[in-house]
Simulated assay, not measured.
Amino acid sequence: MCNLSQGIKEEAYAEGTENGIAKGVAKFIIKMYRKGYEVEQIGDILDMEVEEVQEIIEFE
């Protein structure tokens, strides 16, 4: 992975942690999304706003 990609990924995780979302949850969201879960489903399962889930996925 290039340094730019790594920096963006680290920034996304840092932002998620600042917003009260643990790194593990962010990884879990990305994994669910890659397996085909819809953003709305992930939000419902984790009791999160769709916008929060979408932000994490976009930073991935």
Rank of each mutant, 00 (worst) to 15 (best):
Q41E: 12
I30K: 02
R34E: 10
M1I: 12
R34S: 00
G16N: 00
K9Y: 10
K27S: 04
S5D: 12
V39K: 04
D44Q: 12
N3V: 14
A14E: 14
E18F: 15
E52F: 10
M32E: 05
G43L: 03
I21P: 01
M48Y: 03
A12R: 11
K23C: 11
I45G: 01
E11D: 11
E49V: 05
A22S: 14
I42W: 00
I57R: 02
E58T: 09
I30V: 07
I57Q: 04
E18I: 09
V39T: 05
G43T: 01
I42P: 00
Q6G: 11
G36R: 01
A26H: 06
E11L: 14
I45W: 03
I45K: 00
Q41G: 00
M32N: 03
I29F: 04
V53W: 01
G16R: 02
I21C: 06
G24F: 02
I45T: 07
M1G: 15
M48D: 01
C2A: 12
I8E: 11
I30H: 03
E55C: 07
M32F: 09
Y33I: 05
L46F: 02
G24C: 02
D47L: 07
Q54C: 10
E18A: 14
E51V: 11
E38R: 11
G24R: 02
E55V: 09
I45F: 02
V50L: 06
C2G: 14
K27I: 00
G16Y: 03
V53Q: 03
V39M: 07
G36A: 01
A26M: 10
S5A: 15
E51D: 15
E51G: 09
E55Y: 10
I30S: 03
N19V: 10
G24Y: 08
E49T: 06
Y33D: 12
Y33T: 09
E18G: 13
K27D: 12
Q41I: 00
K35H: 09
L4N: 14
G20E: 02
I45Y: 05
I57W: 09
G16D: 07
G43S: 03
S5W: 10
Q41P: 00
